[in-house]
Design a protein around this nucleic acid. Structure first.
Length: 112
DNA sequence: ATTATGACTCCCA
DNA sequence: GTGGGAGCCATAA
């Protein structure tokens, strides 16, 4: 996976992420299935690691990407510095967290 | 060149 | 439903 391919991959991720409406969330794995896997990556490899690459893309995303609407497969916000802010942003958009800090993906999950 | 680490997911206890 | 380990890529040190 060369630098250029990775860059294009990130760009695809961001494009998808920008389509998530306010008040809805998508998972890393979901974004991974929506974008076109790079031809240089084997299918099983992609399946196993795409989510991490999505995470990397989120870490480097531009200002106009709603990164806060991307959560992990359990519907929880990934534990990291700033996650508190992320939760607040989502609550402002109407997303509801349960007592365990989890989002009901059946209600708030984004369906493209 | 080698090592450690990660905004994850799957599978099995 | 929760918790811990494996998976095996890319990046930073």
């Amino acid at each position: 996976m060369d630098r250029l391919t990775l860059l294009k991959f990130q760009k695809d991720i961001w494009q998808i992420a920008r389509q998530i409406p306010a008040g809805k969330v998508a998972t890393y794995g979901q974004l991974a299935t929506l974008v076109k896997p790079p031809a240089t990556v084997a299918a099983d490899t992609y399946k196993a690691f795409a989510a991490r690459w999505v995470g990397g893309a989120m870490a480097a995303c531009p200002e106009d990407v709603p990164w806060q609407r991307v959560v992990n497969s359990q519907g929880k916000i990934s534990d990291r510095p700033g996650s508190q802010h992320q939760r607040q942003l989502l609550e402002n958009e109407g997303v509801v967290f349960d007592a365990k800090g989890k989002i009901d993906l059946n209600r708030f999950g984004w369906k493209p």
